[in-house]
Amino acid sequence: MSDELHSAAIPSSGGVARWLPWALLVALALLPVVGAQLGLDYYVGFVRRMLIVMIAATSLNFILGYGGMAALGHAGFIGVGAYTVVALVDAGVSSAWTAWGAAVLVSGAFAALIGAVSLRTRGVYFLMITLAFAQMLYYLAVSLSAYGGDDGYGLYSPLELGAGRTTGDAALFFWVVLAIAALVFSFASRAAVSRFGHALTGIRDNETRMEALGYPVYRLKLAAFTGAGALAGLAGALLASHNNFVSPSTMHWTESATLLVMVVLGGLGRRWGAVLGVAVWLVLSEVLKLYTEYWHWPLGLMLIAVVFAAPRGLAGLFDDRSSA
């Protein structure tokens, strides 16, 4: 049997696709060193935030792009992860790994519960019910006066990473985030071409047929939704450490919408889609903010342009060029 079909999934750019991720990883790993020498600490921080958002976007791309589940409440899980860190720090936990690990578990548990209910609906109703649950989490956070309520909660002392180092060490924390982001990205890329990923795209394309083929459709979707929620929670936990601050606004519905927008912008269900979308969106926002206080409208215009001119997202544009 031939291998053509599987290599054809990466059109004609096989060589580039092989070394590009590694080159990118090396370049990013060098950034804190170079940045410190050039006095670009702010930008090192910016890239760190970008990497964290990429984790969340990658998880959303997995359920939306591969699984066809249009969830508009992903920021809720980011919030759960962030507040788990807050709760643990407030209770005296100082280890980053404990706090982040707990965030993954707690947000995964929330995702499992919310998914169990939401996945009984379809389409717009699914979109709305995931939004509704995120709103519930939002109001819950507002009401937690012990953690600052509406005003948010400041994390004043950095978390311990082990060997006497903390998240206050900007370069080290950067590398930790980079390593986690790289792991999440590789895992998502691999999962997409695994049995699980294939089953998920099958469900996206023809749910009834998958059920009739013998697939436990609901359980598969729930597993994906739970995993994505857990990863979003991880992003939330890292974001809490990155900002040293957590507030309910993390969970506002426009945050969920923005995440959705970034994924679609980059290219739904494409390996590099989420990463590309986050990079373009955040870099553009940052650059525009430098020049004008009216930095939203060009982004809005870009979204409209993408919907009409590049319906498969920016990653889709690259495909066209390489196969043309």
């Binding site: 895992f187 691999r190 999962a191 071409v193 695994s194 049995r195 699980f196 990923g197 294939h198 089953a199 697939y215 436990p216 598969l220 597993a223």
Partner: peptide
């Protein structure tokens, strides 16, 4: 079909 580490 829950296996997600190995390429199919």
């Amino acid at each position: 079909s829950f296996r997600c580490f190995r390429r199919r």
